[in-house]
Design a protein around this nucleic acid. Structure first.
Length: 601
RNA sequence: GCACCGUUGGUCCAGUGGUAGGACAUUAGCUUCCCAAGCUAAUAGCCCGGGUUCAAUUCCCGGACGGUGCACCA
């Protein structure tokens, strides 16, 4: 349990803190300090490496402000809109639309305007579910979780800050499919901020009004495309299926991705594939697998379009928090934009062999229909065409009967079959337009940062003194290394230390230089921000005829190796990308120290 | 958004109707050849607005922010 201590450390050492403190602070907004910003960037780079580069996907960057029409199509305008009513007696807030639905049997009261819901509450004498007092006469407040703004001067055009990064990908699909040369499957990623005007932001980075998402939209042909499941079939995962959650003493299912998919625990192979990829990635960036699981959504919490949905959850401070979601979204998103937007959100799927199909067509003689039906002629022609597709037999008689117009205007007409020019043609079809399905792994970056810090937070004793350190993965740690002169009143040491730091920076490493206070203090400073390696320049390294050497200290064990200055940059780079410190000691030799670490827990 | 509690140097806390003190941290110097040592000095604070009062960091009201519970979390 390190909650309060971690928050204090995050503030003191520059990981993150509440934003706009000089103006009283703003709930739901956090600033990442120097350490936190570096950590977050490293995490995003690791995500980009795995989910964009390794998968052969492509990353885009769409605007954060989008026009209202986008969210009409996506459903956010309605779905993100809550109608709240507050009880005057006990002060409880309730979803007004839900209360009305329960009282009246109306479905989808959410879509009704606030005044109408107020009216319905009055008519049906809806009472507060908490205390039973009547709610009639109370204001129904309209609360939309999206931040609204105006695009352009004056009244402009209404726009919203995107509540998820995904829409930026879906909206641009017509062009993105061109870049994929019209072929499925392909994946588009995006890392960026999203905004939700949360009623009550809480818990540090856990529920913010501005937060960073890393999302992949994998577009597939549901009938043809299969994921490379063999790559992750042996990956071990801890699953928490819906059935287990329903049981009193439901247990985790420790299995492999391959098993879970073949046994149908995970419904979609694509979702299974990405759970496996994610599991490996989470281990790589330093999530404690004992405090990690994939939890299946219960039927009730699943969005209506999602056939199967799993969350990655991590345990932070005793609570399980959602850090990623994996949803099979079907064709929901693209179909909606196809219907609402101007462009085509389908791809052309070529058949293996062109198909020849017989198609009934008509070619009405408009020089007859025009004089006869006047303004209705076009409608009649269209009706004939529809009829030909539906019931070709109707054209076998001498006359054909069609209906045109709506409601009271509806009229029945009889037309000579000759005029319709009915025929059955053989048509060659090379393929069809299909709406791709979408598999969406969606990661919360801030929540992952919080998880990594919580899981990396350790205390032990070094030389009998208590120590706090962050056991961050070298790839993720804000800094790659720190460089110190062992003592500060020895000019050759400070000179070399300064030179070493400059060389390492030139080699592309993020390096801190520190010559303030005792050596132990400097080690502890770096331990607390998770710097994996500390380079110390000492007398032994510059005396004698051999090449200059320095000691490299590993954070968690406090063990040291003596490494030539000339090799240092390469060795540190290797350690960052998966090299082990034991290997370094094997090759260069350890430095004997009396320092001992204990690990509590 | 409601209820309760809280807000004092960078951090964690003490305290007061007459504007504040500690610890740690930080900075400078000395010391120091491997793990928050020591010595000297320095920097730095009462969340914001209104009210009561001769006087408010302190009391009262409101707000902001934070914690907890409820509600909310497509």
């Amino acid at each position: 349990m390190a909650g309060a201590e971690l928050v204090e450390l995050a503030k003191r050492r520059g990981f993150f803190f509440g934003a706009n403190g000089a103006y009283g602070g703003t709930a739901g907004f956090y600033t990442f300090g120097p350490q936190g910003a570096a950590l977050k960037r490293n995490l995003e780079d690791a995500w980009r490496d795995r989910f964009t580069l390794q998968e052969g996907n492509r990353e885009i960057e769409a605007p954060t402000v989008m026009p209202e029409a986008v969210f009409e199509a996506s459903g956010h305008l309605e779905g993100f809109d809550d109608l709240l009513v507050e009880c005057g007696e006990c002060g409880e807030s309730h979803r007004a639309d839900h209360l009305v639905e329960d009282a009246t049997g109306i479905e989808d009261a959410e879509a009704l305007p606030g005044e109408e819901v107020e009216e319905l509450i009055r008519e049906h004498d809806v009472a507060c579910p908490s205390c039973g007092s009547p709610l009639a006469g109370r204001d129904v407040e309209d609360f939309n979780l999206m931040f609204a703004t105006d695009i352009g001067p004056g009244d402009g055009q209404p726009g919203y800050l995107r509540p998820e990064t995904a829409q930026g990908i879906f909206v641009e699909f017509p062009r993105l499919k061109e870049y994929a040369r019209g072929s499925l499957p392909f994946g588009i990623t995006q890392i960026g901020p999203a905004y939700r005007n949360e009623i009550s932001p809480r818990g540090g980075l856990l529920r913010l009004r501005e937060f960073t998402q890393a999302e992949l939209e994998q577009f597939i042909d549901p009938e043809a495309d299969e994921p490379p499941l063999e790559r992750v079939e042996d990956v071990e995962v801890r699953l928490y299926p819906a059935t287990a959650q329903d049981e009193e003493d439901g247990e985790y299912l420790d299995t492999t991705v391959g098993e879970a998919v073949s046994e149908g625990v995970i419904g979609s192979p694509w979702v299974g594939y990405y759970l496996g990829v994610a599991q490996e990635w989470y281990e790589r960036v330093g999530v404690d697998t004992d405090r990690f699981r994939f939890r299946q959504h219960l039927a009730g919490e699943r969005a209506h379009y999602a056939a199967d949905c799993w969350d990655a959850e991590s345990e932070v401070d005793g609570d399980w928090i959602e850090i990623a979601g994996f949803a099979y979204r079907g064709d929901y998103d693209l179909s909606k934009h196809d219907a609402y937007g101007d462009d085509s959100f389908t791809v052309f799927k070529r058949y293996d062999e062109p198909k020849t199909v017989e198609r009934a067509t008509v070619d009405p003689d408009m020089s007859v229909l025009g004089p006869e039906f006047g303004g209705d002629a076009a409608a009649v022609a269209e009706a004939l065409e529809t009829l030909a597709g539906r019931d070709p037999d109707a054209f076998e008689d001498e006359t054909v009967t069609v209906e045109v117009g709506e409601g009271d205007e509806r009229e029945t007409h009889e037309i000579d079959a000759d005029v319709a020019n009915f025929s059955i043609e053989a048509v060659t079809e090379n393929g069809e337009h299909i709406t791709p399905h979408v598999v969406e792994p969606s990661f919360g970056v801030g929540r992952t940062v919080q998880t990594l810090l919580a899981h990396a937070y350790e205390t032990d004793e070094v030389d009998g003194e208590e120590r706090t350190y962050l056991s961050l993965a070298p790839e993720i740690a804000p800094r790659d290394a720190a460089v110190f002169p062992l003592v500060t009143n020895d000019e050759p040491l400070t000179d070399l230390a300064g030179r070493v730091a400059a060389d390492l920076r030139e080699a592309g490493l993020a390096v801190a230089y520190d010559d303030s206070g005792s050596i132990g203090r400097r080690y502890r400073r770096q331990d607390e921000v998770g710097t994996p390696f500390c380079v110390t320049v000492d007398r032994d390294g510059i005396e004698g005829d051999g090449p200059e050497t320095v000691t490299v200290r590993e954070r968690d064990s406090a063990a040291q190796a003596r490494v030539p200055v000339a090799d240092l940059a390469d060795e540190l780079a290797a350690l960052r990308t998966g090299g082990t410190f034991d290997d370094l000691i094997d090759r260069y030799g350890a430095v004997e120290t009396d320092v001992e670490t204990t690990t509590e827990n």
